[in-house]
Write a protein that binds this DNA or RNA. Sequence first.
DNA 1: ACGATTTGACCGAC
DNA 2: GTCGGTCAAATCGT
Length: 340
Amino acid sequence: MGSSFEFEKSTIVNELIQGMEVARQLKFHLSSSSTSPENQLTMLQKILSSYDTALLLLNWSDSSVVQPQAVPAMVNLPESPISTNESGDFKDHHQDVSKKRKALPTWKDHVKICSDNGMENSGDDGYSWRKYGQKDILGAKHPRSYYRCTYKKTRTCHASKQVQRSDNDPAIFEITYKGKHTCLQASNSVLPATPKKKEQKHSHDHHQQQQPNEMLINFRANLRVKTEDFRVVEASDSFSFPSGIDSNSQISSYSPYSQLVDEDLMGTFSPFISPDTTGSSYFSVSPYQMNSFGQLSGSDYTEIMSANTSTTNSPILDLDFQIDEVDLDSNFPFDTPGFF
DNA sequence: ACGATTTGACCGAC
DNA sequence: GTCGGTCAAATCGT
């Protein structure tokens, strides 16, 4: 392996060290309770961001197929790439896709469309997609829809995704993302405020963007984290955002490595959210934002999501636990053979 | 008129 | 030949 591996390794180590450092700070603040919940959250998110990046890099260097977190919108988060597919209901599409297609980073998400309050949330991931095809898939009860980035031509963005309703649970959509966005449509203001006309299609994906503040608010709103087997966890206490809660909003997700990282809080905001004219807001995270692929910064890919809270058994919790385990010692020998 | 969606046709991989 | 993915003309919605 050449220098590229060395580069990745050092990057990974740096990310982990950074995460450790922030964790250390957080630990200190927690013990002294001198910090506001928001700051603590920010720190936690930074930690998660670092670990996400490190894990993504590990995955990326392992093979051309990456399964980063994807975060489908409003409704949930992506499943953990590292975790085994507990649900077993989904086929591992990304694998076969990668064999047939070139090495575009591919990963899957499971999005559950919630219909609490009579509303059906769509799996908005914050990006603008254009449907270009639909196919009946052998053995599947529902057709698979194909989407590509709306800015494929104008911004030469080759991101695409496939959406298929689960056979077992119609409320669940399996979303396979391919390629990362190069259109940067998520960058704050630039959002294509194209009011999606077809909200109608219950879509698992309409994609309008939303301003950061709105994101936070919506996010906070009645957060729900759906873990891999779609258990719904109410998130609220441990996660405190500034204001109002809208019980209509929900976020379910499972996170690959972790999700949570609110861009706003992190410094770089990634507007994966979209203001929905219907009133339901989503909080979405884009799967594509990972710096391991290039131009986007670390915080970019770790979007938001935050749905993790201490009340869940989400990956985040695991991470917390791990952090404790190592006692936040930055001297931890990351370069120890076998550590990875 | 323009942009998005639908849907049958086409193409490559197996 | 079958199947999954994409193309592109027709259609729809604004």
